[in-house]
Amino acid sequence: MEQKQPIIIRRVKKVAGGHHGGAWKVAYADFVTAMMAFFLVMWLVGIASKEQKAAVSEYFKNPSAVEGSAAIPGSSSLGPGGASDKLIPTANALSMPGGIGPKVGDPGEATRSRIPSEEAARAAAAEDRRQLDELRRDLEAAIEKSLALAPFKDQLLIDLTPEGLRIQIVDRLNRPMFDLGSARMKDYTAEVMHELGALLTDTPHRIALAGHTDETPFQAPRGYGNWELSSDRANAARRALLEGGLDEARIARVVGLASSVPFDRDDPRAPINRRISLVVLNRAADAAPDALASVPPPLPDAAPATVAVAPAFPAPLHAGHD
């Protein structure tokens, strides 16, 4: 009898997965919340005005228990918007009623006490130039009317430069301003300087003076040369202006430039290079110690806004002179 093979039945027991909880839901909710916050911030940045952005920046960068009123972020050693590093209240804060004014180091107060804005600076410079241009017209009119100045109007050159209103008194071939090789003024030169001193008494601007010589070598005992001569002539012009009524406090500086800044570059020995430059300084130039030396002389063929431009005369007939 044939033996039957046993039939083995294997039953697969299915076990249900364990309960994982809702941790993934929390993570997903955090992610969605973060994205909502991100897009909300981006939306607010897109629609906010400049003042509103500044106020938000101030709130986060300079928190305080007292509500502030600054519309733009202040500045400190940490950069714009940083908290103040001042420990002593400002005079304005102490002068407020009750002794309580702006917070110590209030960023708004620091901003308000800054230097004038660029717009204000430009407006001040424009007003400065307007005043000097008006002074130029007044001087031109006065020179035309003055009996003392009219004969010398071809030796008086007036123009506006970046440093202010420049008046140059130049030599002519047969009408020098000073004695030969000397700082002694001719009588008519002194009269011209007296008249200019009287005309410049009403302007509030300070004045810088420079003496110039031509390139002709000049040598006197003890090494006295064109540098010393140009300085002495500039000082002689200063004294003549004071005799004409100009207040000494109005003189900003007096320098001698010898032949380093020629008027006529083509002919360094031309009489027109021997001159006194008087600059009525604007506010910006008054603060710069080298303003006078930095003013380039006008070219003879393109002199700007002058009363009269003296031509470049031939070289002097004498030698060994300034």
Rank of each mutant, 00 (worst) to 15 (best):
K4Y: 06
D301N: 12
V66W: 07
L44V: 13
D133Q: 13
A16H: 03
S259W: 09
G21Q: 06
L157W: 04
S75V: 11
P221V: 07
P204S: 05
F38K: 14
P289M: 02
E191D: 11
Y188L: 01
L241I: 02
L209V: 04
F39A: 09
G244I: 00
V279W: 01
G105M: 00
V32M: 08
P297T: 03
A54F: 11
V307F: 14
G99K: 06
M36R: 10
N282R: 04
N174R: 11
A141M: 05
F178I: 01
A110S: 12
G22E: 04
K145Y: 04
I167C: 05
F313T: 08
V255F: 08
I167S: 01
A198N: 11
K153T: 07
F152I: 07
V309W: 10
L317E: 14
E243C: 04
D106G: 02
D232N: 13
G223N: 05
L299I: 02
V12S: 12
A16V: 08
R222I: 01
K86A: 13
F218N: 00
Y28S: 11
V45F: 15
M35Q: 13
G108W: 02
P298H: 03
K153S: 12
A287K: 10
F38M: 12
N62I: 00
A285I: 06
R283W: 01
R206F: 06
V255C: 09
R166A: 14
E134D: 12
W24F: 12
P89W: 05
S113K: 14
P271T: 03
R136E: 09
K14Y: 14
K186E: 12
L160C: 01
D247N: 13
K14S: 09
G164W: 00
